[in-house]
Design a protein around this nucleic acid. Structure first.
Lengths: 288, 288
DNA sequence: CGATCGTTTGACGGTGCTCAATCACCGTGG
DNA sequence: CCACGGTGATTGAGCACCGTCAAACGATCG
Protein backbone atom coordinates (compact mmCIF):
# COMPACT_ATOMS: atom_id res chain seq x y z
CA UNK A 1 0.00 0.00 0.00
CA UNK A 2 2.68 2.40 0.96
CA UNK A 3 5.25 1.18 -1.49
CA UNK A 4 3.08 2.00 -4.44
CA UNK A 5 4.39 5.51 -4.46
CA UNK A 6 7.99 4.53 -3.94
CA UNK A 7 8.90 5.56 -7.42
CA UNK A 8 7.25 8.91 -7.14
CA UNK A 9 9.81 11.26 -8.56
CA UNK A 10 10.18 14.94 -7.88
CA UNK A 11 8.56 17.36 -10.25
CA UNK A 12 11.96 18.19 -11.60
CA UNK A 13 12.36 14.72 -13.01
CA UNK A 14 9.33 15.01 -15.20
CA UNK A 15 10.87 13.08 -18.05
CA UNK A 16 9.67 9.98 -16.30
CA UNK A 17 6.25 11.50 -15.79
CA UNK A 18 5.74 12.25 -19.40
CA UNK A 19 6.69 8.69 -20.15
CA UNK A 20 3.67 7.76 -18.09
CA UNK A 21 1.51 9.83 -20.34
CA UNK A 22 3.12 8.38 -23.42
CA UNK A 23 2.13 4.88 -22.41
CA UNK A 24 -0.51 3.23 -24.58
CA UNK A 25 -3.42 4.36 -22.45
CA UNK A 26 -6.97 3.53 -23.49
CA UNK A 27 -6.83 6.60 -25.70
CA UNK A 28 -9.35 8.43 -23.58
CA UNK A 29 -7.78 10.67 -20.91
CA UNK A 30 -11.20 11.41 -19.50
CA UNK A 31 -13.25 8.28 -19.60
CA UNK A 32 -15.48 8.13 -16.57
CA UNK A 33 -18.06 10.59 -15.41
CA UNK A 34 -19.56 11.14 -12.01
CA UNK A 35 -22.86 12.48 -10.86
CA UNK A 36 -23.04 16.05 -9.72
CA UNK A 37 -25.00 14.93 -6.69
CA UNK A 38 -22.08 12.77 -5.59
CA UNK A 39 -19.73 15.71 -5.94
CA UNK A 40 -22.03 17.86 -3.87
CA UNK A 41 -22.40 15.27 -1.16
CA UNK A 42 -18.63 14.90 -0.92
CA UNK A 43 -18.34 18.65 -0.55
CA UNK A 44 -20.94 18.58 2.18
CA UNK A 45 -23.53 20.66 0.37
CA UNK A 46 -27.28 20.42 0.48
CA UNK A 47 -28.83 19.46 -2.80
CA UNK A 48 -31.61 21.79 -3.86
CA UNK A 49 -32.62 20.15 -7.13
CA UNK A 50 -32.27 16.42 -6.75
CA UNK A 51 -33.29 15.49 -10.27
CA UNK A 52 -30.94 17.92 -11.97
CA UNK A 53 -28.02 16.92 -9.78
CA UNK A 54 -28.61 13.24 -10.32
CA UNK A 55 -28.76 13.69 -14.05
CA UNK A 56 -25.90 16.10 -14.51
CA UNK A 57 -22.58 14.36 -15.14
CA UNK A 58 -19.15 15.71 -14.27
CA UNK A 59 -15.95 14.52 -15.94
CA UNK A 60 -14.01 12.24 -13.62
CA UNK A 61 -10.28 11.78 -13.89
CA UNK A 62 -8.14 9.13 -12.29
CA UNK A 63 -4.61 10.11 -11.34
CA UNK A 64 -2.01 7.49 -10.50
CA UNK A 65 0.56 7.96 -7.77
CA UNK A 66 3.34 10.27 -8.84
CA UNK A 67 1.50 11.71 -11.81
CA UNK A 68 1.31 15.46 -12.24
CA UNK A 69 -2.28 16.68 -12.27
CA UNK A 70 -1.40 20.31 -12.92
CA UNK A 71 1.89 21.62 -14.11
CA UNK A 72 3.08 25.06 -13.07
CA UNK A 73 2.85 27.52 -15.91
CA UNK A 74 0.42 25.61 -18.09
CA UNK A 75 -2.86 27.04 -19.23
CA UNK A 76 -5.74 26.56 -16.83
CA UNK A 77 -8.43 24.33 -18.29
CA UNK A 78 -10.25 22.97 -15.29
CA UNK A 79 -10.67 23.31 -11.59
CA UNK A 80 -10.57 20.02 -9.73
CA UNK A 81 -12.27 18.69 -6.64
CA UNK A 82 -10.60 15.72 -4.98
CA UNK A 83 -12.82 12.66 -4.69
CA UNK A 84 -10.23 10.40 -3.07
CA UNK A 85 -6.49 10.27 -2.70
CA UNK A 86 -3.97 12.91 -1.71
CA UNK A 87 -2.06 15.55 -3.66
CA UNK A 88 0.79 17.84 -2.86
CA UNK A 89 0.75 21.35 -4.28
CA UNK A 90 4.10 22.95 -4.90
CA UNK A 91 6.03 25.68 -6.61
CA UNK A 92 9.52 25.37 -7.99
CA UNK A 93 11.76 28.31 -7.17
CA UNK A 94 14.23 29.73 -9.66
CA UNK A 95 17.00 27.75 -8.05
CA UNK A 96 15.10 24.52 -8.55
CA UNK A 97 14.05 24.19 -4.93
CA UNK A 98 10.68 22.48 -4.67
CA UNK A 99 8.50 24.32 -2.16
CA UNK A 100 5.58 22.22 -0.98
CA UNK A 101 2.69 24.56 -0.29
CA UNK A 102 0.25 22.08 1.09
CA UNK A 103 -1.51 18.77 0.82
CA UNK A 104 -4.97 18.36 -0.63
CA UNK A 105 -7.33 15.56 0.20
CA UNK A 106 -10.96 14.68 -0.13
CA UNK A 107 -13.28 17.59 -0.99
CA UNK A 108 -10.39 19.99 -1.46
CA UNK A 109 -10.34 22.25 -4.50
CA UNK A 110 -7.23 22.25 -6.68
CA UNK A 111 -6.32 24.74 -9.35
CA UNK A 112 -8.56 27.61 -8.43
CA UNK A 113 -5.58 29.89 -8.00
CA UNK A 114 -5.19 29.87 -11.79
CA UNK A 115 -8.49 31.59 -12.49
CA UNK A 116 -7.19 35.12 -12.16
CA UNK A 117 -4.22 34.78 -14.49
CA UNK A 118 -5.31 31.94 -16.73
CA UNK A 119 -2.27 29.82 -16.02
CA UNK A 120 -1.41 27.72 -13.01
CA UNK A 121 0.92 29.34 -10.49
CA UNK A 122 1.52 26.02 -8.77
CA UNK A 123 1.74 22.34 -9.60
CA UNK A 124 -0.21 19.46 -8.12
CA UNK A 125 1.16 15.92 -7.89
CA UNK A 126 -0.70 12.84 -6.71
CA UNK A 127 0.95 11.20 -3.71
CA UNK A 128 -1.17 8.10 -4.11
CA UNK A 129 -3.71 6.85 -6.61
CA UNK A 130 -6.43 9.43 -6.67
CA UNK A 131 -9.60 10.53 -8.40
CA UNK A 132 -10.79 14.07 -9.09
CA UNK A 133 -13.86 15.75 -10.48
CA UNK A 134 -12.95 18.13 -13.28
CA UNK A 135 -14.92 21.35 -13.59
CA UNK A 136 -14.07 22.97 -16.92
CA UNK A 137 -13.50 26.66 -16.39
CA UNK A 138 -15.48 27.53 -19.50
CA UNK A 139 -18.54 25.93 -18.00
CA UNK A 140 -17.88 27.03 -14.47
CA UNK A 141 -19.86 30.25 -14.50
CA UNK A 142 -22.86 28.66 -16.13
CA UNK A 143 -22.75 25.69 -13.82
CA UNK A 144 -22.57 27.87 -10.74
CA UNK A 145 -25.50 29.89 -11.98
CA UNK A 146 -27.64 26.87 -12.68
CA UNK A 147 -26.74 25.00 -9.51
CA UNK A 148 -26.70 27.32 -6.52
CA UNK A 149 -25.72 24.46 -4.24
CA UNK A 150 -22.50 24.01 -6.15
CA UNK A 151 -21.90 27.72 -6.01
CA UNK A 152 -22.23 27.77 -2.26
CA UNK A 153 -20.13 24.66 -1.85
CA UNK A 154 -17.36 26.15 -3.94
CA UNK A 155 -17.47 29.39 -2.01
CA UNK A 156 -17.26 27.53 1.25
CA UNK A 157 -14.43 25.32 0.05
CA UNK A 158 -12.47 28.32 -1.16
CA UNK A 159 -13.03 30.09 2.10
CA UNK A 160 -11.75 27.03 3.93
CA UNK A 161 -8.76 26.82 1.65
CA UNK A 162 -8.00 30.47 2.31
CA UNK A 163 -8.25 29.88 6.03
CA UNK A 164 -6.09 26.79 5.72
CA UNK A 165 -3.41 28.72 3.89
CA UNK A 166 -2.44 30.09 7.27
CA UNK A 167 -1.39 26.57 8.18
CA UNK A 168 1.91 26.79 6.36
CA UNK A 169 2.67 30.02 8.18
CA UNK A 170 1.78 28.33 11.44
CA UNK A 171 4.24 25.47 10.98
CA UNK A 172 7.00 27.67 9.61
CA UNK A 173 6.62 30.28 12.34
CA UNK A 174 7.87 27.97 15.05
CA UNK A 175 11.58 28.22 15.70
CA UNK A 176 12.21 24.74 17.06
CA UNK A 177 12.00 22.07 14.43
CA UNK A 178 10.16 19.72 16.80
CA UNK A 179 7.51 22.38 17.27
CA UNK A 180 7.07 22.63 13.52
CA UNK A 181 6.67 18.91 13.19
CA UNK A 182 4.33 18.77 16.15
CA UNK A 183 2.14 21.47 14.65
CA UNK A 184 2.11 19.67 11.36
CA UNK A 185 1.03 16.43 13.01
CA UNK A 186 -1.67 18.23 14.97
CA UNK A 187 -2.95 19.82 11.77
CA UNK A 188 -3.14 16.42 10.14
CA UNK A 189 -4.91 15.10 13.19
CA UNK A 190 -7.46 17.89 13.14
CA UNK A 191 -8.05 17.31 9.48
CA UNK A 192 -8.75 13.67 10.19
CA UNK A 193 -11.18 14.77 12.87
CA UNK A 194 -12.98 17.02 10.40
CA UNK A 195 -13.36 14.02 8.11
CA UNK A 196 -14.67 11.93 10.95
CA UNK A 197 -11.70 9.59 11.06
CA UNK A 198 -9.32 8.55 13.79
CA UNK A 199 -7.31 11.47 15.16
CA UNK A 200 -4.60 9.34 16.76
CA UNK A 201 -3.48 7.13 13.95
CA UNK A 202 -2.12 9.03 11.00
CA UNK A 203 -0.97 7.74 7.65
CA UNK A 204 1.35 10.21 6.01
CA UNK A 205 1.22 9.72 2.24
CA UNK A 206 4.11 12.12 1.65
CA UNK A 207 7.84 11.56 1.87
CA UNK A 208 10.09 13.02 4.53
CA UNK A 209 11.45 15.36 1.93
CA UNK A 210 7.97 16.68 1.18
CA UNK A 211 7.34 17.23 4.88
CA UNK A 212 10.70 18.96 5.19
CA UNK A 213 9.90 21.31 2.34
CA UNK A 214 6.53 22.06 3.84
CA UNK A 215 8.02 22.77 7.26
CA UNK A 216 10.91 24.77 5.89
CA UNK A 217 13.67 22.60 7.29
CA UNK A 218 16.19 20.13 5.94
CA UNK A 219 14.88 16.62 5.52
CA UNK A 220 17.49 15.29 7.93
CA UNK A 221 16.02 17.58 10.54
CA UNK A 222 12.62 16.02 10.01
CA UNK A 223 14.09 12.63 10.79
CA UNK A 224 15.77 13.97 13.91
CA UNK A 225 12.61 15.70 15.05
CA UNK A 226 10.60 12.53 14.62
CA UNK A 227 13.24 10.82 16.72
CA UNK A 228 12.89 13.39 19.48
CA UNK A 229 9.11 13.15 19.54
CA UNK A 230 9.45 9.39 19.81
CA UNK A 231 12.07 9.68 22.57
CA UNK A 232 9.74 11.92 24.52
CA UNK A 233 6.98 9.39 24.12
CA UNK A 234 4.58 11.70 22.32
CA UNK A 235 4.27 9.64 19.17
CA UNK A 236 5.11 6.25 17.78
CA UNK A 237 6.49 6.19 14.27
CA UNK A 238 6.67 3.32 11.85
CA UNK A 239 7.90 4.65 8.54
CA UNK A 240 4.88 6.62 7.33
CA UNK A 241 2.49 5.44 9.98
CA UNK A 242 2.33 7.76 12.96
CA UNK A 243 0.41 7.19 16.15
CA UNK A 244 -0.13 10.07 18.51
CA UNK A 245 0.33 8.81 22.05
CA UNK A 246 0.12 12.06 23.99
CA UNK A 247 -1.88 14.81 22.32
CA UNK A 248 -1.47 17.26 25.16
CA UNK A 249 2.26 16.70 25.24
CA UNK A 250 2.42 17.31 21.54
CA UNK A 251 0.42 20.48 21.98
CA UNK A 252 2.84 21.58 24.67
CA UNK A 253 5.73 21.22 22.25
CA UNK A 254 3.81 22.96 19.51
CA UNK A 255 2.87 25.88 21.71
CA UNK A 256 6.11 27.77 21.91
CA UNK A 257 6.50 29.78 18.74
CA UNK A 258 9.67 31.27 20.09
CA UNK A 259 11.50 31.59 23.35
CA UNK A 260 9.92 34.73 24.73
CA UNK A 261 7.22 33.66 27.19
CA UNK A 262 5.44 36.97 26.62
CA UNK A 263 6.49 38.47 29.97
CA UNK A 264 3.44 37.16 31.82
CA UNK A 265 5.34 34.31 33.39
CA UNK A 266 4.03 32.68 36.55
CA UNK A 267 1.29 30.79 34.83
CA UNK A 268 2.45 27.38 33.77
CA UNK A 269 5.89 25.84 33.41
CA UNK A 270 5.32 25.57 29.71
CA UNK A 271 8.86 26.22 28.67
CA UNK A 272 10.81 23.62 26.87
CA UNK A 273 13.56 22.34 29.06
CA UNK A 274 16.92 23.39 27.75
CA UNK A 275 18.03 19.85 28.33
CA UNK A 276 20.46 19.40 25.53
CA UNK A 277 17.90 17.20 23.89
CA UNK A 278 16.87 13.58 24.40
CA UNK A 279 15.69 14.55 27.87
CA UNK A 280 11.96 14.85 28.18
CA UNK A 281 10.82 18.44 28.00
CA UNK A 282 8.73 20.08 30.70
CA UNK A 283 5.81 17.85 29.77
CA UNK A 284 2.65 19.69 30.62
CA UNK A 285 0.46 16.62 30.74
CA UNK A 286 2.97 14.16 32.09
CA UNK A 287 3.13 15.55 35.57
CA UNK A 288 -0.55 14.89 35.99
CA UNK B 1 2.34 60.46 6.90
CA UNK B 2 4.26 57.60 8.27
CA UNK B 3 4.26 58.63 11.85
CA UNK B 4 0.52 58.53 12.05
CA UNK B 5 0.66 54.85 12.84
CA UNK B 6 3.41 55.18 15.39
CA UNK B 7 1.03 54.26 18.14
CA UNK B 8 -0.22 51.22 16.42
CA UNK B 9 -0.13 48.64 19.13
CA UNK B 10 0.03 44.91 18.73
CA UNK B 11 -3.17 42.98 18.69
CA UNK B 12 -2.24 41.60 22.07
CA UNK B 13 -2.61 45.00 23.61
CA UNK B 14 -6.18 45.27 22.54
CA UNK B 15 -7.26 47.13 25.61
CA UNK B 16 -6.16 50.25 23.83
CA UNK B 17 -7.94 49.22 20.70
CA UNK B 18 -11.25 48.73 22.39
CA UNK B 19 -10.83 52.15 23.91
CA UNK B 20 -10.82 53.43 20.37
CA UNK B 21 -14.17 51.83 19.83
CA UNK B 22 -15.51 53.15 23.07
CA UNK B 23 -14.77 56.72 22.04
CA UNK B 24 -17.80 58.93 21.46
CA UNK B 25 -17.95 58.29 17.75
CA UNK B 26 -20.59 60.04 15.64
CA UNK B 27 -22.92 57.21 16.62
CA UNK B 28 -22.95 55.92 13.06
CA UNK B 29 -20.24 53.32 12.45
CA UNK B 30 -21.23 53.19 8.81
CA UNK B 31 -21.91 56.66 7.59
CA UNK B 32 -20.74 56.98 4.02
CA UNK B 33 -21.71 54.92 1.05
CA UNK B 34 -19.93 54.35 -2.20
CA UNK B 35 -21.14 53.50 -5.66
CA UNK B 36 -20.94 49.94 -6.80
CA UNK B 37 -19.44 51.11 -10.05
CA UNK B 38 -16.51 52.63 -8.18
CA UNK B 39 -15.95 49.37 -6.35
CA UNK B 40 -15.97 47.48 -9.61
CA UNK B 41 -13.57 49.86 -11.29
CA UNK B 42 -11.16 49.55 -8.37
CA UNK B 43 -11.33 45.79 -8.67
CA UNK B 44 -10.62 46.07 -12.37
CA UNK B 45 -13.91 44.62 -13.55
CA UNK B 46 -15.94 45.49 -16.59
CA UNK B 47 -19.29 46.98 -15.82
CA UNK B 48 -22.11 45.27 -17.63
CA UNK B 49 -25.03 47.33 -16.37
CA UNK B 50 -23.90 50.89 -15.98
CA UNK B 51 -27.16 52.26 -14.63
CA UNK B 52 -27.60 49.64 -11.95
CA UNK B 53 -23.97 49.93 -10.84
CA UNK B 54 -24.13 53.71 -10.63
CA UNK B 55 -27.30 53.60 -8.60
CA UNK B 56 -26.42 50.79 -6.24
CA UNK B 57 -24.74 51.97 -3.08
CA UNK B 58 -22.29 49.99 -0.96
CA UNK B 59 -21.59 50.75 2.70
CA UNK B 60 -18.25 52.46 3.07
CA UNK B 61 -16.24 52.30 6.26
CA UNK B 62 -13.30 54.40 7.28
CA UNK B 63 -10.67 52.77 9.44
CA UNK B 64 -8.06 54.82 11.26
CA UNK B 65 -4.48 53.70 11.65
CA UNK B 66 -4.12 51.05 14.32
CA UNK B 67 -7.80 50.19 14.49
CA UNK B 68 -8.89 46.56 14.27
CA UNK B 69 -11.17 45.98 11.30
CA UNK B 70 -11.79 42.33 12.07
CA UNK B 71 -11.07 40.58 15.29
CA UNK B 72 -10.12 36.93 15.35
CA UNK B 73 -12.94 34.78 16.62
CA UNK B 74 -15.76 37.28 16.15
CA UNK B 75 -18.80 36.52 14.06
CA UNK B 76 -18.46 37.27 10.38
CA UNK B 77 -20.81 40.02 9.28
CA UNK B 78 -19.22 41.42 6.16
CA UNK B 79 -16.55 40.86 3.59
CA UNK B 80 -14.45 43.90 2.86
CA UNK B 81 -12.73 45.24 -0.21
CA UNK B 82 -9.95 47.74 0.38
CA UNK B 83 -10.49 51.10 -1.29
CA UNK B 84 -7.33 52.74 0.02
CA UNK B 85 -4.87 52.19 2.81
CA UNK B 86 -3.07 49.08 4.00
CA UNK B 87 -3.96 46.35 6.46
CA UNK B 88 -2.07 43.54 8.05
CA UNK B 89 -3.81 40.24 8.59
CA UNK B 90 -2.64 38.14 11.48
CA UNK B 91 -3.35 35.29 13.82
CA UNK B 92 -2.38 35.12 17.46
CA UNK B 93 -0.91 31.80 18.51
CA UNK B 94 -1.70 30.20 21.84
CA UNK B 95 1.51 31.55 23.28
CA UNK B 96 0.55 35.09 22.32
CA UNK B 97 2.87 35.28 19.36
CA UNK B 98 1.41 37.48 16.64
CA UNK B 99 1.87 35.83 13.26
CA UNK B 100 1.46 38.30 10.42
CA UNK B 101 -0.05 36.40 7.49
CA UNK B 102 0.08 39.14 4.92
CA UNK B 103 -0.61 42.71 3.96
CA UNK B 104 -3.70 43.81 2.09
CA UNK B 105 -3.91 46.91 -0.05
CA UNK B 106 -6.12 48.42 -2.68
CA UNK B 107 -8.60 46.02 -4.28
CA UNK B 108 -7.73 43.20 -1.89
CA UNK B 109 -10.50 41.23 -0.24
CA UNK B 110 -10.47 40.90 3.53
CA UNK B 111 -12.49 38.52 5.63
CA UNK B 112 -13.53 36.01 3.04
CA UNK B 113 -11.85 33.22 4.99
CA UNK B 114 -14.64 33.50 7.54
CA UNK B 115 -17.41 32.43 5.18
CA UNK B 116 -16.98 28.71 5.72
CA UNK B 117 -17.08 28.74 9.50
CA UNK B 118 -19.05 31.91 10.19
CA UNK B 119 -16.35 33.42 12.39
CA UNK B 120 -13.10 35.08 11.49
CA UNK B 121 -10.01 32.87 11.72
CA UNK B 122 -7.73 35.90 11.47
CA UNK B 123 -7.66 39.55 12.44
CA UNK B 124 -7.11 42.57 10.24
CA UNK B 125 -5.57 45.79 11.51
CA UNK B 126 -5.17 49.03 9.60
CA UNK B 127 -1.55 50.12 9.27
CA UNK B 128 -2.58 53.56 8.07
CA UNK B 129 -5.82 55.43 7.64
CA UNK B 130 -7.89 53.36 5.27
CA UNK B 131 -11.27 52.96 3.67
CA UNK B 132 -13.08 49.74 2.83
CA UNK B 133 -16.24 48.73 1.04
CA UNK B 134 -18.35 46.46 3.22
CA UNK B 135 -20.27 43.65 1.56
CA UNK B 136 -22.72 42.21 4.08
CA UNK B 137 -22.57 38.45 3.90
CA UNK B 138 -26.35 38.19 4.07
CA UNK B 139 -26.67 40.15 0.86
CA UNK B 140 -23.61 38.65 -0.79
CA UNK B 141 -25.33 35.83 -2.65
CA UNK B 142 -28.08 38.04 -3.95
CA UNK B 143 -25.67 40.75 -4.97
CA UNK B 144 -23.47 38.32 -6.84
CA UNK B 145 -26.48 36.93 -8.62
CA UNK B 146 -27.75 40.33 -9.67
CA UNK B 147 -24.38 41.74 -10.64
CA UNK B 148 -22.36 39.20 -12.59
CA UNK B 149 -19.49 41.65 -12.92
CA UNK B 150 -19.09 41.71 -9.16
CA UNK B 151 -19.26 37.94 -9.09
CA UNK B 152 -16.44 37.63 -11.58
CA UNK B 153 -14.38 40.30 -9.87
CA UNK B 154 -14.73 38.54 -6.55
CA UNK B 155 -13.78 35.20 -8.05
CA UNK B 156 -10.75 36.73 -9.64
CA UNK B 157 -9.71 38.53 -6.49
CA UNK B 158 -10.06 35.35 -4.45
CA UNK B 159 -8.06 33.43 -6.98
CA UNK B 160 -5.34 36.05 -6.78
CA UNK B 161 -5.43 35.95 -3.01
CA UNK B 162 -5.08 32.18 -3.09
CA UNK B 163 -2.13 32.48 -5.45
CA UNK B 164 -0.63 35.17 -3.28
CA UNK B 165 -0.89 33.01 -0.21
CA UNK B 166 2.15 31.19 -1.54
CA UNK B 167 4.07 34.37 -0.94
CA UNK B 168 4.47 33.77 2.76
CA UNK B 169 5.84 30.32 2.01
CA UNK B 170 8.22 31.85 -0.50
CA UNK B 171 9.73 34.29 1.95
CA UNK B 172 9.89 31.80 4.80
CA UNK B 173 11.42 29.08 2.66
CA UNK B 174 14.69 30.90 2.25
CA UNK B 175 17.31 30.02 4.82
CA UNK B 176 19.33 33.21 4.79
CA UNK B 177 17.53 36.11 6.40
CA UNK B 178 18.74 38.51 3.69
CA UNK B 179 17.15 36.26 1.07
CA UNK B 180 13.85 36.40 2.95
CA UNK B 181 13.96 40.16 3.12
CA UNK B 182 15.01 40.43 -0.52
CA UNK B 183 12.11 38.25 -1.58
CA UNK B 184 9.75 40.32 0.49
CA UNK B 185 10.97 43.53 -1.09
CA UNK B 186 10.69 42.04 -4.55
CA UNK B 187 7.15 40.96 -3.79
CA UNK B 188 6.28 44.47 -2.73
CA UNK B 189 7.92 45.79 -5.84
CA UNK B 190 5.94 43.45 -8.08
CA UNK B 191 2.78 44.45 -6.33
CA UNK B 192 3.54 48.08 -7.01
CA UNK B 193 4.11 47.17 -10.63
CA UNK B 194 0.71 45.48 -10.79
CA UNK B 195 -0.84 48.68 -9.49
CA UNK B 196 1.01 50.71 -12.07
CA UNK B 197 3.21 52.49 -9.57
CA UNK B 198 6.93 52.89 -9.22
CA UNK B 199 8.72 49.59 -8.65
CA UNK B 200 11.91 51.10 -7.26
CA UNK B 201 10.65 53.35 -4.52
CA UNK B 202 8.75 51.51 -1.81
CA UNK B 203 6.96 52.86 1.20
CA UNK B 204 6.60 50.21 3.83
CA UNK B 205 3.60 51.02 6.03
CA UNK B 206 4.38 48.23 8.48
CA UNK B 207 6.80 48.14 11.38
CA UNK B 208 9.99 46.12 11.50
CA UNK B 209 8.29 43.82 13.92
CA UNK B 210 5.48 43.17 11.48
CA UNK B 211 7.98 42.41 8.75
CA UNK B 212 9.89 40.14 11.09
CA UNK B 213 6.77 38.20 11.97
CA UNK B 214 5.89 37.87 8.31
CA UNK B 215 9.38 36.66 7.42
CA UNK B 216 9.61 34.33 10.39
CA UNK B 217 12.68 35.93 11.94
CA UNK B 218 13.45 38.11 14.94
CA UNK B 219 12.93 41.80 14.40
CA UNK B 220 16.58 42.48 15.16
CA UNK B 221 17.46 40.23 12.28
CA UNK B 222 15.32 42.34 9.99
CA UNK B 223 17.32 45.39 10.97
CA UNK B 224 20.58 43.56 10.36
CA UNK B 225 19.42 42.24 7.02
CA UNK B 226 18.42 45.71 5.92
CA UNK B 227 21.88 46.79 6.90
CA UNK B 228 23.49 44.07 4.80
CA UNK B 229 21.41 44.90 1.75
CA UNK B 230 22.43 48.52 2.16
CA UNK B 231 26.09 47.58 2.58
CA UNK B 232 25.95 45.57 -0.60
CA UNK B 233 24.47 48.54 -2.40
CA UNK B 234 21.26 46.83 -3.41
CA UNK B 235 18.89 49.17 -1.61
CA UNK B 236 18.82 52.49 0.16
CA UNK B 237 16.83 52.62 3.36
CA UNK B 238 15.46 55.61 5.18
CA UNK B 239 13.31 54.38 8.02
CA UNK B 240 10.28 53.06 6.16
CA UNK B 241 11.21 54.36 2.76
CA UNK B 242 13.13 51.86 0.67
CA UNK B 243 14.65 52.46 -2.73
CA UNK B 244 15.76 49.51 -4.79
CA UNK B 245 19.07 50.37 -6.42
CA UNK B 246 19.96 47.03 -8.00
CA UNK B 247 17.01 44.80 -8.81
CA UNK B 248 19.12 42.06 -10.37
CA UNK B 249 21.44 42.03 -7.41
CA UNK B 250 18.46 41.72 -5.12
CA UNK B 251 17.14 38.88 -7.23
CA UNK B 252 20.51 37.17 -6.98
CA UNK B 253 20.30 37.27 -3.21
CA UNK B 254 16.71 36.10 -3.26
CA UNK B 255 17.47 33.19 -5.55
CA UNK B 256 19.18 30.79 -3.22
CA UNK B 257 16.55 29.03 -1.19
CA UNK B 258 19.18 26.91 0.45
CA UNK B 259 22.78 25.97 -0.04
CA UNK B 260 22.41 23.09 -2.44
CA UNK B 261 23.15 24.45 -5.94
CA UNK B 262 21.03 21.69 -7.44
CA UNK B 263 23.98 19.75 -8.86
CA UNK B 264 23.87 21.42 -12.26
CA UNK B 265 26.71 23.79 -11.44
CA UNK B 266 28.76 25.30 -14.25
CA UNK B 267 26.14 27.84 -15.15
CA UNK B 268 26.60 30.99 -13.17
CA UNK B 269 28.59 31.84 -10.07
CA UNK B 270 25.34 32.46 -8.26
CA UNK B 271 26.50 31.24 -4.88
CA UNK B 272 26.63 33.60 -2.02
CA UNK B 273 30.21 34.12 -1.02
CA UNK B 274 30.92 32.61 2.35
CA UNK B 275 32.52 35.86 3.23
CA UNK B 276 31.69 36.15 6.87
CA UNK B 277 29.25 38.89 5.97
CA UNK B 278 29.70 42.55 5.17
CA UNK B 279 31.64 41.57 2.11
CA UNK B 280 29.70 41.90 -1.09
CA UNK B 281 28.27 38.58 -2.23
CA UNK B 282 29.01 37.07 -5.62
CA UNK B 283 26.98 39.85 -7.23
CA UNK B 284 25.52 38.51 -10.43
CA UNK B 285 24.91 41.89 -11.98
CA UNK B 286 27.80 43.79 -10.51
CA UNK B 287 30.49 42.16 -12.55
CA UNK B 288 28.93 43.54 -15.69
C1' DC C 1 11.88 66.84 30.36
C1' DG C 2 10.56 62.04 31.08
C1' DA C 3 8.14 58.09 29.13
C1' DT C 4 7.20 55.04 25.62
C1' DC C 5 7.95 52.89 21.45
C1' DG C 6 10.53 51.77 17.26
C1' DT C 7 14.96 50.97 15.45
C1' DT C 8 19.69 49.80 15.56
C1' DT C 9 24.00 47.61 17.12
C1' DG C 10 26.77 44.40 19.96
C1' DA C 11 28.04 39.79 22.13
C1' DC C 12 27.17 35.12 23.14
C1' DG C 13 25.32 30.57 22.85
C1' DG C 14 22.62 27.15 20.68
C1' DT C 15 20.25 25.07 16.88
C1' DG C 16 19.83 23.54 12.43
C1' DC C 17 22.14 23.32 7.83
C1' DT C 18 25.68 21.12 5.27
C1' DC C 19 28.38 17.29 4.15
C1' DA C 20 28.88 12.40 4.70
C1' DA C 21 28.24 7.60 5.79
C1' DT C 22 25.16 3.90 6.84
C1' DC C 23 21.12 1.06 6.71
C1' DA C 24 16.75 -0.66 4.83
C1' DC C 25 13.79 -1.56 1.08
C1' DC C 26 12.57 -2.47 -3.68
C1' DG C 27 13.00 -3.91 -8.47
C1' DT C 28 16.02 -5.72 -11.90
C1' DG C 29 18.85 -8.97 -14.00
C1' DG C 30 22.45 -12.18 -13.99
C1' DC D 1 19.36 -17.29 -5.29
C1' DC D 2 22.15 -13.10 -4.47
C1' DA D 3 24.55 -9.12 -6.40
C1' DC D 4 23.54 -4.71 -8.06
C1' DG D 5 21.83 0.07 -8.43
C1' DG D 6 18.53 3.43 -6.82
C1' DT D 7 15.79 5.70 -3.45
C1' DG D 8 14.30 6.89 1.14
C1' DA D 9 15.32 7.22 5.94
C1' DT D 10 18.44 7.64 9.62
C1' DT D 11 22.57 9.07 12.22
C1' DG D 12 26.93 11.61 13.01
C1' DA D 13 30.26 15.73 13.07
C1' DG D 14 31.44 20.56 12.43
C1' DC D 15 30.44 25.23 12.03
C1' DA D 16 28.04 29.26 10.40
C1' DC D 17 23.88 31.76 11.25
C1' DC D 18 20.26 33.48 13.84
C1' DG D 19 17.78 33.96 18.32
C1' DT D 20 18.23 35.80 22.74
C1' DC D 21 19.61 39.23 25.97
C1' DA D 22 21.27 43.80 26.53
C1' DA D 23 22.10 48.55 25.73
C1' DA D 24 21.95 52.78 23.17
C1' DC D 25 19.80 56.03 20.08
C1' DG D 26 15.97 58.65 17.90
C1' DA D 27 11.26 60.14 17.52
C1' DT D 28 6.89 61.20 19.29
C1' DC D 29 3.75 62.55 22.77
C1' DG D 30 2.13 64.17 27.14
Amino acid sequence: MVQVQARMSSIAGQAGQQAWHARPLPLAPVAAQGRLSDLLSIMGANIDDRRLCDAYLIPLRRVRAGVVLLHEGTRAESVYVVRFGTFKTLRVAEDGYEQVLGFSGQADVIGFDALCSGSHPSSAVALEDAGVYALPIRELDGLRQRVPALDRALQSALSAQLAGAAGIAEVMAAVASEARLARFLLQRSMRMAALGQSTRRLRLPMSRRDIASHLGVAHETVSRSFGELVNWGFVAVDNREVEILDTDGLRGIARNTRGCPDERGSEAPQRRARTRRTARPCASSVAA
